[in-house]
Amino acid sequence: MYLTGKITKTLFLLALAALLATFSGLAFAADARALLKESESRHRTKTQQYAGELTVVNKEGKIRKKGWKSFREGYAGDAKNLIRFTDPPEVKGVGFLSVARPGAQNPDQWLYLPSMKRERRIATQDRDSSFVGTDFSYEDMEEFDHEKYKVELHGEQLVDSFPCYVIEAKPLEKKGKSTYEKKILFLRKDNLYLLREDLYRKGEKEPGKRMILSDLQQVGGHWVARKMEMKDLKKGSTTTVLLKEILFDKPQPVSRFTLQNLNREGGE
């Protein structure tokens, strides 16, 4: 009788512990989601455009410079992006268009090569490929949309001396395919701006890539990182983008984010 009572008590305690653990997990998840929602709400802009100065440094220290112009309309899950390379001559005129498919899976992506005079569609499984010789992949060029991820708060950590929330984001397969198993996001606590993103490829325990955003400034009332670094930790190479001529909420032409515009030779 005594033994039965002890077992019952133990089972009760275990059940209670499991319930607490579940609720605390939900609470963390809810916190992470709320933080990401708040971050999106604070930093959402109608449009953004900038001129990017890229420096690609490989493992041996060899430096390649590139330049692009970037245009965005919408944000996160409704974003449209157009990038047009301006330098060097080898890639000048190369264009990239990414259009989110609302409520659907991965965005549609196309690459325009002046030598071909027409666009090439990027298949979903190609999104791990390097984007025009940089350390960014086609997937990295997408806007982060937390609704496509299962998110969980993993405490706090200092990044570049700023206290940050650490959030784990795992792609939801039904919301699209990802080349990453998970992403660890570091959101600065005071302004909820993303400072770092560790990217884990599928089946890997260590991050394969790391994106670092720094040199935060206010432009037109919006926070923006003027420096963006993507490190390929396996290859040992780094691509740094310096953002110049940043403009927010400037109305973009209706046709900016269309295939017709992507195919405009010499156009933006």
Partner: peptide, 23 residues
Amino acid sequence: LRIPLNSTHDLQLGRFQLGWGKT
């Protein structure tokens, strides 16, 4: 010259290369 007629139409005239296939 490529002249935008409106937000959805362009007129290109002169000497240029067409590309309708895959390299």
